[in-house]
């Protein structure tokens, strides 16, 4: 079975080093590239009074994302924020072109399916975005597998027409939708 996590479940997870077993940070927000890919995480210090850390955790340095922790090889995997092109797509919507949360999902023929409320990541090795959670006009929730995406702009996500009838209504369904593409994700 493919295990999946929502972005909001990843926020707040401890970032733990494999070599020393220390919780060196916790996930503050997800950071997206301009093309909608997950670039990595901004970080908070651990603990009740932990403020924001300067370092970023880029996707390439993530050993695994699991339900209990984000694993990295060592604390050298945290890199200083050098003003990358990526921007934060947190609940506030972030700034710039890489906004993902709140984007409207439309089909190629122009029907609105809903707005993106969260992202879905694959548990296990690395950091892989596999889909989006969206809120439909009738307030119900649905999931879109990432491979169905045609394009994303910062305001809209365009998906094929046939997806309108294939929306997944729970994560298990999305897992089945993702499974055929999983081999391609684990490069």
């Amino acid at each position: 079975m493919t295990a999946l996590l929502l972005g909001r479940d990843v926020i707040g997870l401890p970032v733990v080093t494999i070599d020393r077993g220390e919780d060196v940070a916790e996930v503050r927000e997800l950071v997206f590239e301009r093309d909608g890919a997950l670039a990595g995480f901004t970080l908070n210090k651990r603990g009740f009074l932990g403020g924001r850390m300067r370092e970023l955790l880029v996707a390439a340095n993530v050993a695994a994302v699991g339900p209990a922790a984000v694993m990295i090889d060592s604390d050298g995997c945290l890199a200083a924020d050098e003003g990358s092109t990526a921007s934060v797509g947190g609940s506030g919507g972030g700034s710039g072109d890489a906004r993902v949360f709140g984007d409207e999902v439309i089909t190629e023929s122009g029907s609105a399916l809903g707005t993106i409320t969260d992202v879905v990541v694959l548990c296990g090795g690395g950091l892989a975005l596999v889909g989006y959670q969206l809120a439909k006009a009738d307030k119900s929730t649905a999931f879109v597998p990432l491979p169905a995406q045609r394009s994303i702009s910062g305001s809209h996500l365009v998906v094929p027409d046939e997806l309108a009838t294939q929306l997944r209504h729970d994560l298990t369904g999305l897992g089945e939708g993702v499974a055929p593409y999983k081999d391609g994700l684990e490069t």
Binding site: T17, I18, D19, G21, D23
Partner: peptide
């Protein structure tokens, strides 16, 4: 066995 620290013992999946 991969590591031990104040937060956790890490083992290979």
């Amino acid at each position: 066995f991969r590591g031990v620290g104040s937060y956790a013992v890490v083992v290979a999946a």
